[in-house]
Design a protein around this nucleic acid. Structure first.
Lengths: 344, 344
DNA sequence: TTGTACGCGTTATCAA
DNA sequence: TTGATAACGCGTACAA
């Protein structure tokens, strides 16, 4: 026989379905006499009854499911975020639906449509681009949304991002204190807030020392892309003595490029990453990087989203999460080989 | 005004809801005259209509959602599996619901209950323990299930796992060929198939050379645990000259322990991991490890699950995915310092 | 080819 | 405190 339904429980307990429904829900069990509640619940237990969430959602217009869009779960920076979100969500009785977008619009739309059709109660987006029509639509459609790690240019939707400005500033100051004067930047995609903001923060931090020709941008936040664009930067007659990368994956790409050229870090080049994603403390050399609390970011994002679902009329807010510099072995003073006085 | 429903579309197109329903579904659109289909679809488009998946699922008893239980998305081995599964699922119009269990039963049950209440059409479990009542229940309840990466002792449910036996054998042979004679094993939790099978395969591969006192087991597949149990193995008067770890995280723990003791890899100890998870090629030293095709495993698992959902009566099958050894820099011949002839 | 009528399983409203 | 009844939005036999 098939899954028992509420009606079966009600019959087994000798009450009406409505009564059974009330007895089973904590919120409404107070209306029912303790004996009846007990009778219904034990009947449900012995029948192995399980509510049909679809029917409930149809009636209550709440699915207790949340969707999350991210570029690629395979990027080691995201799992802690997802884990943080999932922990907060499941603690509140919500379920997490995941979708990878590869930073492209078509998959993003596809996933979004699917999630919305399935009546998710809200959406977290970790894959927003600076100009993202998808986010606009969501906002206009009145869907509870929280942006994570990346924001769009036009606001109107709550978001939580790392303090990129401070992070980059700390990185630059660290390098300058070590004596570096020719500092380059391997930036991320300019159509993302992280790519654009970090590049801007880099320029601002350097001030007069800013050298536009020492800045390159990757089209994606991947090791391969970092490798490729860093090569052009390193393969010139007057390469930088230090590089601030827009994230750890790009930084690793820089290290790869450096190795290809037969040079080594930090002897020939200092490298700073961004995110402090898992395992970068174990790579060669252990990476100096700006730490972003991924787990916290995911957790708080979920909490913000749940709060927004409870109180849809509260204004959007954007939270800036503190970052700090973790100094490891990929940064060191410039040597005479690459120092400013060399000028071959 | 609220979300338009089918009725609104029907009215806008001047037809009955039933007609609108048929016109909107590709499967049934053939029953409807082309003009009507066009009229209905354009009405739907201009109204911004979106089916209510809950109502549809309630009626069709298919949610097009799949649940996946895993120990911890933060363990770098799992993201590729999840990505593979998600890609296959979304290609088939399914949605992925995620749950982290931390290898504990209570969270597993909680997530499972939530997923089942939400009427998922099937479940993938990457967190099974050897004796897992949760899996038994699922099987007995007739829920379509596929086990990934780990299996239970009692079968009856389809599964896909790496060929651990061959992988371990390749690792051991590689070390023996290098000249190692005192080879130890840092095993995983014995209540998981991966922990138990790899330990067994290790013993079998070594045959007469097997030394039970050179085997320790971690209670969890984490770097910390590996660090801890490896210390006891390395901190003895006659430590092994090589260690096969049950997975990469444990292997990294071994490297940590080695560093604590002031020794280095591969000079004082060769280490082989398992999984070839992302970034282990960049750690110090680049890790020799048994490669498991995580993405493929996730993709195929999803495909198997979908097949099972289509044909619930087909018998359970278990797929063994080929593994191979990736030799990098964490393995080398034993030196006189730690070689078999030393015997202090 | 289209319309009628009903049910999927639950909760909310109203009445008793 | 409990029961009767009507939705929630959709798909589908069956009839026309």
């Amino acid at each position: 026989m098939r899954q028992p339904r509420l009606k079966d429980v009600a019959e087994a307990a000798g009450v009406h379905v409505a009564t059974a429904s009330r007895a089973l829900n904590d919120r409404t069990a107070g209306m029912i006499s303790p004996e009846t509640v007990a009778r219904v619940r034990s009947a449900a237990l012995s029948l192995g009854y399980r509510v049909n969430g679809m029917a409930r959602a149809l009636k209550t217009r709440r699915s207790f499911a949340i969707g999350m869009l991210l570029p690629d779960i395979t990027n080691p920076f995201f799992p802690p975020i997802v884990r943080g979100a999932e922990d907060a969500l499941s603690a509140a009785g919500f379920t997490l639906v995941l979708g990878n977008t590869d930073n492209e619009e078509e998959p993003a739309r596809r996933h979004l449509t699917g999630m919305l059709e399935r009546q998710v109660d809200g959406i977290m987006i970790a894959s927003a681009r600076r100009d993202d029509p998808v986010v606009e639509q969501l906002r206009d459609a009145g869907v509870s949304t929280v942006l994570v790690n990346r924001i769009t240019q036009r606001g109107g939707v709550s978001s939580i991002i790392p303090d990129e400005r401070v992070g980059i500033l700390l990185a630059v100051e660290h390098l300058q204190r070590l004596g570096h004067q020719r500092i380059g930047h391997v930036g991320g995609p300019r159509n993302t807030s992280s790519g654009a903001q970090r590049a801007q923060a880099f320029a601002d931090a350097l001030g007069d020392a800013y050298r536009p020709d020492l800045v390159v941008h990757a089209d994606r936040f991947t090791e391969q892309e970092g490798h490729q664009v860093a090569t052009s930067l390193l393969d010139r007659s007057d390469p930088p003595t230090a590089i601030v990368a827009a994230n750890d994956l790009l930084a690793i790409g820089v290290l790869d490029a450096l190795g290809d050229l037969g040079r080594s870090c930090p002897r020939d080049l200092s490298v700073v990453g961004f995110n402090d994603m898992p395992l970068v403390d174990h790579i060669r050399p252990p990476l100096t990087t700006v730490r972003v609390p991924g787990y916290e970011m995911g957790r708080r994002a979920a909490e913000m989203l749940l709060a927004h679902i409870e109180h849809p009329d509260r204004p959007a807010e954007t939270v800036l999460l503190a970052t700090n510099l973790v100094i490891r072995a990929s940064t060191a003073p410039p040597t005479s080989r690459n120092g400013p006085t060399t000028g071959s």
